[in-house]
Design a protein around this nucleic acid. Structure first.
Lengths: 102, 102
DNA sequence: TCGCTTGTTCGAGTATTATCGAACTATCGA
DNA sequence: TCGATAGTTCGATAATACTCGAACAAGCGA
């Protein structure tokens, strides 16, 4: 069973978060997770090869935005909303709201 | 008199804004302008050569975050707070708040 | 165990960005 | 007009990230 590196809540860095969200594919992934709760990588497909998507998931993971948990053959992603809210209260909500109107 | 390109309010793009703010030097510039109101480029010096700073000012300008106005030999920068608030209500405030606690 | 599915990792090529010195532009004051 | 000041632009180099195919790893069902 594969394990992933997820930063601790207190180690989540603002500039890293902003950078991770500065990519259209990645912010769309986050927006989808915010709506749906959880989703496998396949469900979050953005029309790119799996290797490209995996790259983006890693960027989000290492920024502390999502948590990926193996579940059978698929990997479930979830938004680390509570952790991010604790680290940067209100930030995620306003970015998601901005993403809707963008 | 030199003129600068500043995007129109409705053309401000979220991912560009997030990217511009994903650099420690640039988010510090924005935080300083949020506190002080306006400042020349020289006042916002971050210990880097002028050419490097100019590069960062341009990134912020083209993202729509700051407005630069020539004033004599110096150039005054100001945060485009009202414009950004109109385009993405609440976004700037929460990012600046996050930057304080980071 | 074999084959299928899901997703990661690796490697190479490409593109974008950061950094800084040097040259340039524009403005102001003497 | 000369010199000083404030920033920009250019050009080169280095670093970083994106993209994708190919190979790999792990779990599940037959």
């Amino acid at each position: 069973m594969r394990t992933y590196k997820h930063p601790k809540t207190e180690d989540i860095d603002l500039t890293r978060v902003l950078y991770a969200l500065s990519d259209p594919i990645r912010i769309e992934i986050v927006a989808t997770l915010a709506r749906q709760g959880t989703a496998s990588c396949a469900e979050l497909d953005a029309g790119r090869p799996k290797s490209s998507m995996s790259h983006h998931f890693r960027a989000l993971r290492e920024a502390g935005l999502i948590r990926t948990t193996p579940e059978g053959t698929s990997h479930i992603n979830e938004l680390r909303r509570a952790d991010i809210d604790r680290r940067f209260p209100g930030l995620l909500k306003s970015i998601l709201k901005a993403a809707e109107s963008a």
